[in-house]
Simulated assay, not measured.
Amino acid sequence: MTDGDAPRMPQRRVVLKAGGTALMGAWLLSGCESSQPVDDRLRGPDRPTPRARFLTDAELRTLRALVDRLIPAGLQPGAAAAHAEEAIDALLAAFMTDPPLIHAGGPYSDRAGGTRNDFERFMPLDDYEALAWRIVIEGSLGRPEREFNGPVVGLQQIYRDGLAHLEARAAQLATGVLPAALGDILRERLGDTPLSDVLDLVNSLTGTEGFADLPALLRDVIVLDYSDAQVQALIDVAFPGTLDGTYGAPEYGGNRDLVGWTSTGWPGDVQPRGWTDSEVIHRDPPGPFDALLPPSYGGVDFGPPAAGVRARPEFELPPLLIAAGETLAATIMNAEGSLAALQRRLAVQDRVRPEWIWRAAHG
Rank of each mutant, 00 (worst) to 15 (best):
G298T: 14
A216T: 11
P250Q: 01
R256S: 13
G299C: 10
P286Y: 00
L258S: 10
E314D: 14
A249H: 15
E251R: 10
P285L: 01
H282M: 09
P295H: 00
E279A: 12
E279T: 11
P304N: 00
P285W: 00
P305A: 00
W261N: 09
L217T: 04
S296R: 13
T276I: 12
Y226N: 12
V309T: 08
P295M: 00
G254P: 05
Q232V: 08
N255A: 02
E279Q: 15
G254N: 02
G303H: 01
D236M: 11
E251W: 00
A249V: 09
I281P: 07
D284T: 14
Q230K: 14
N255D: 05
V300I: 13
E209F: 13
A307H: 08
R283Y: 09
T242N: 07
E279V: 01
P313K: 01
P304A: 03
A249C: 15
G268E: 02
D213V: 07
R283V: 07
Y252C: 10
A229W: 00
G253T: 08
L317F: 06
D277T: 13
Y252D: 08
A216N: 02
L293W: 05
I281R: 14
P304V: 06
Y226G: 09
T242A: 01
Q232M: 10
D225P: 10
Q230G: 11
F211A: 08
A216D: 03
A249D: 15
E209Y: 10
D228Q: 05
P215Y: 08
R283W: 14
I281F: 05
T246Y: 10
F302I: 12
A307S: 08
P305I: 07
G241A: 10
D228H: 05
L317N: 04
L258A: 06
G253F: 14
L292E: 06
W261H: 10
R310E: 09
V237A: 10
G248N: 06
A212T: 01
P272N: 01
G265R: 09
L243R: 02
T276Y: 05
V270Q: 15
F289G: 02
S296M: 13
G308W: 07
D236V: 11
T242K: 03
L292F: 13
V237C: 05
V259C: 13
A233C: 09
P288Y: 00
H282T: 09
L317E: 06
F239W: 15
L292M: 15
A291I: 14
Q232H: 11
P318L: 01
E209V: 12
Y247E: 03
D213Y: 03
G260S: 12
V231A: 00
D225I: 03
P304K: 06
F211I: 13
L320N: 06
V309W: 00
F239D: 12
P319E: 08
P319R: 02
G299A: 04
E316P: 08
G274C: 06
G210E: 01
D236I: 10
D236N: 14
L320A: 12
T276P: 15
Q232L: 11
Q232G: 05
P313L: 03
L317G: 02
D301T: 04
G299W: 04
R283T: 13
P285E: 06
L258W: 09
